[in-house]
Simulated assay, not measured.
Amino acid sequence: MKRWLSLVLALSLALVLAACGSASSTDKSQGSNKEVTLTVGASNVPHAEILKQAQPILKEKGINLKIVTFQDYILPNKALATNQIDANYFQTIPYFNLQMKENGYKFSNAGGIHIEPIGVYSKKYKSLKDLPNGAHIIISNSVSDHPRLLLMLQKLGLIELKPGIDPQQYDIKDIVSNPKNLKLDANYEAALLPKIYKNGEGDAVLINSNYAIDNGLDPMKDSIAHEPSDPKSPYVNIIAVRKGDENKPAIKTLVQVLHSKQIQDWIKQKYHGAVLPVSE
């Protein structure tokens, strides 16, 4: 009887182990073949266009990339915070930091992808030197944009800013020299600036490249000046995710693909300097 019971127990244990081994193998197989869906919110141009180029590459790696486009700078972060999307791609680091501070978002920067130089556009003048005394200059009302716009005007030789201030804290009140007595008008949302320019308002309008391109403007040909190139610019556009998700394999793969030579070369050929790729 004991020998019979031992035999039964041995057979039972063998069947259990075999079953576990079979389940483990099946799970592994299913895991390797299962496609992951990644939903990313983005501005129409250039972000969504760049993501579309990455879609087939990601598909080969088992990632189904879904792109949700947004027309403003507020909703993409709200959608990310409320789990409606897995990541977003539209914002610079200063704006990202400001949004987290103001709204209590728990986000992480998964990687910088590109820089969009800001352009100076004018229907009335062909160069900066032609701007008259007291020229009306229209800029974005986004506080996070102001340090960048002011530093740009300083680099272009139009103003001087108070020294000894954190570059990311500059505001209009920090202008200490303004030879042309430029009148800076910060009463409009960034998305409206291309329309304002096309309507001939102001003497010059400073427009972000994504909005310029999305409205049929060529930042390199239509602007009378643009932001000087700076490879160390903090205004890189990033992939933003919820805190902790930056280590997820699908997110890491997305960033790797966007950093790939294939995508970077496409960005250079497509935008001719209006959008500059970064590799890290």
Rank of each mutant, 00 (worst) to 15 (best):
S122T: 07
Q256D: 15
L65I: 10
I172G: 01
T37M: 01
A274H: 07
K126W: 03
N133L: 08
L156G: 07
C20W: 07
G111M: 04
I137S: 06
G164E: 14
Q71M: 06
Y271V: 10
K261P: 00
E189Y: 05
P277E: 13
P132S: 07
I207P: 06
E227M: 08
L98Y: 11
S6K: 14
G111F: 01
V40Y: 04
L38E: 08
V205Q: 12
F90P: 02
L5R: 11
P277H: 02
Q269F: 00
K270E: 15
Y235N: 15
I138Y: 04
N187H: 11
Y170Q: 08
A250P: 06
P147E: 15
E116H: 00
Y73M: 11
L80F: 07
D72T: 12
I57V: 14
Q91H: 09
Q269N: 12
I115R: 11
P46H: 02
N199K: 12
S142T: 14
A274Y: 04
P167C: 04
E102R: 09
S177I: 04
Q256V: 00
E201W: 05
D130R: 03
G21L: 11
I50L: 00
I251G: 03
S24I: 02
D218N: 15
N44K: 09
E227K: 08
K66D: 15
K61Q: 15
H136K: 14
S12H: 01
G31E: 13
S142G: 11
K248P: 01
W266K: 08
G119L: 10
I251M: 07
P228R: 06
K106F: 00
P194R: 10
V143E: 15
